[in-house]
């Protein structure tokens, strides 16, 4: 039930924020749409709703955001260098890495972070065995453990402290 209430508050404030008008009509339509959205789609979200309201997890989340932005900027400079260079210095390939995260939210954040990180793009997730298939633009090793050490390890350590 608390999941639906939090989703209703989020949907209502997003509606007010996007319409940017506090008339009576906008508020009534916003309440109706918020109730509809929260009762239709609340089953898709995670069971543990209040996971981020915790003094152990919250500072790691604020440590994670600047690290993520810094990796994004490095990825852009790296991609621009590979595109502009006349010989196209790429050795692409799809490698397999191992992950130890279990929850859906953690896996989603890990896959999105790896897509915006320099040199990697997530292709598929095998959730039962805990494997990720990653398209790597400059393949250095082909083994599973060495690739895990090079690609996943840095962010998995932080995401395990946030979402597990």
């Amino acid at each position: 039930m608390i999941k639906r209430v939090i989703l209703f508050i989020g949907a209502f404030f997003t509606w007010i924020f996007l319409s940017w008008d506090t008339d009576m009509e906008h508020i009534i339509v916003g309440i109706a749409i918020g109730i509809f959205v929260s009762f239709m789609t609340a089953d898709l979200f995670e069971k543990r709703t209040l996971i981020l309201v915790n003094l152990k997890r919250c500072p790691w989340f604020f440590y994670y955001i600047p690290l993520f932005i810094w990796e994004c900027i490095k990825a852009n400079i790296d991609g621009a260098y590979r595109v502009v260079h006349p010989d196209l210095p790429i050795r692409p390939g799809i490698v397999k890495v191992r992950t130890t995260l279990k929850s859906d939210t953690g896996l989603t954040f890990l896959a999105n972070t790896l897509t915006l990180k320099p040199g990697t793009l997530t292709v598929d997730i095998d959730k039962e065995n805990g494997f990720l298939y990653i398209h790597w633009i400059d393949v250095k090793t082909q083994g599973v453990e060495a690739a895990t050490e090079l690609i996943v390890h840095k962010f998995e350590r932080i995401l395990k402290k946030i979402f597990e």
Binding site: N76, G79, V84, I90, P92, T115, L116, L121
Partner: peptide, 24 residues
């Protein structure tokens, strides 16, 4: 630079790789 990569690079995965990062 991202859209230049969309023209220059050789296959689907490399094009997606270059363009989605730079354009985002």
């Amino acid at each position: 630079f991202g859209c230049l990569g969309l023209v220059r690079l050789p296959d689907v995965y490399n094009r997606l790789h270059s363009s989605i990062k730079c354009v985002t």
